[in-house]
Design a protein around this nucleic acid. Structure first.
Length: 356
DNA sequence: AACACGGGGAC
DNA sequence: GTCCCAGTGTT
């Protein structure tokens, strides 16, 4: 296929078929940046409501930089990959303090900012400023490997450069933003990972994978991820219409986020185990009004590297009890102190939907 | 270079 | 269950 015709064809297809998405209304680098961070490893349908919430609460980089991290995490709750939210905040502060609130247009300068890697730097530079830099994401790997018959293993780090160079040769030098979005849009709408809609593809006559019947083989990706599983029992400790929350430690999954009192186990706990756990946490045992059924509402969370089984047990304290989480540990208080609990920043949708 | 990091959807 | 997604930071 002739290189100029590829670029022109895909941009023409894009202009006729692109979705009307809220961050495509303007070329404001702030909204491009925000949308790209939200859409990392995230589908458009899942990310869009978050984008709208953020634009409404923080219409520009200055307002975002002034926000508290907890506010940002609260809006981010349920979206996953929470370091994106923390880096978003860090980046906003750096932009205001060191860049006068103006986005750099240069790929290499963008790359230095927290949360902005090769993909996002290229996306902002090209979509926001039409800099001739190609984006390389999952769609680009899929679309280009199939059309051009590239069997290089995308799990291999060195393969990135092959696709980067090919796409740089292909992109329209004066419309790199349209070109990059066009390749990704084709990957999202037509060239699906499974069962692509080749009859609607503008390249169905030239596509290597379609003509050679090798669609399922491309792109080549050998890396396999081992999945571990573990079980966490959550103790929903209630008293006086309040629920005790704790904070996860600084390492591992959901770090620094709030959750119900949790107990990671290899075996099913019984009532004795639960009460021992509470006794240790609180340096003593409160008086219990009731304990809910154990193992009644198991939830399964399938993550990239692990499956987490989460079980929720409800324990209601007598109204003479009160508890607060302070100085990184639980303490008993009189009832009047119970409102000292921190505002929760939630860890996943189950908590979000069922309790708050 | 390998690994950790979330969650949802398609099949 | 398995695979994938508009990736980045850490070790």
């Amino acid at each position: 296929m002739q290189i100029p015709s590829f670029s022109n064809t895909i941009i023409q297809w894009y202009n006729q078929n692109k979705r009307d998405l809220p961050w495509r209304n303007n070329k404001d680098p702030y909204s491009i940046w925000l949308s790209e961070i939200i859409l990392q490893q995230t589908k458009v349908a899942q990310g869009t409501p978050y984008f709208l919430k953020f634009i409404e609460n923080f219409p520009d980089v200055l307002s975002l930089s002034k926000a508290k991290e907890e506010e940002i995490l609260r809006l981010w709750q349920g979206l996953g990959y929470y370091s994106r939210a923390r880096n978003l905040h860090k980046c906003a502060k750096i932009l205001v303090e060191e860049y006068n609130g103006i986005f750099p247009s240069d790929y290499k300068t963008l790359l230095k900012l927290p949360g902005i890697g090769k993909y996002t730097a290229a996306a902002i530079a090209s979509i926001g400023f039409d800099a001739p830099v190609p984006v390389v994401d999952g769609n680009v790997y899929r679309v280009l490997s199939r059309i051009f018959g590239m069997f290089d293993d995308i799990s291999n780090v060195s393969t990135f450069k092959l696709f980067f160079n090919l796409s740089q040769d292909l992109l329209h030098p004066k419309a790199s933003g349209a070109y990059n979005q066009a390749v990704m849009e084709l990957g999202a709408l037509i060239c699906h990972p499974v069962a692509p809609q080749c009859e609607e593809c503008p390249f169905h006559n030239q596509c290597f994978a379609l003509n050679e019947n090798k669609i399922q083989l491309l792109p080549v990706k050998t890396k396999k991820v081992k999945k571990r599983s573990k079980t966490i029992y959550y103790i929903v400790l209630k008293w006086n219409n309040q629920i005790a929350l704790t904070i996860r430690d600084q390492d591992g999954i959901w770090k620094n986020l709030y959750e119900f009192i949790s107990m990671e186990t290899t075996k099913e706990p019984d009532e004795i185990d639960l009460l021992d756990h509470l006794k240790t946490l609180f340096h003593g045992l409160p008086s219990i009004h009731s304990i809910g059924p154990i193992g009644a509402n198991m939830q399964k969370h399938i993550l990239t590297h692990r499956i987490i089984y989460a079980n929720f047990i409800e324990i209601e304290l007598n109204s003479t009890n009160a508890v607060a989480f302070k100085d990184n540990k639980f303490q008993w208080y009189g009832i009047e102190k119970a409102d000292e609990l921190p505002k929760p920043i939630l860890i996943h949708n189950y908590l979000n939907e069922h309790f708050f």
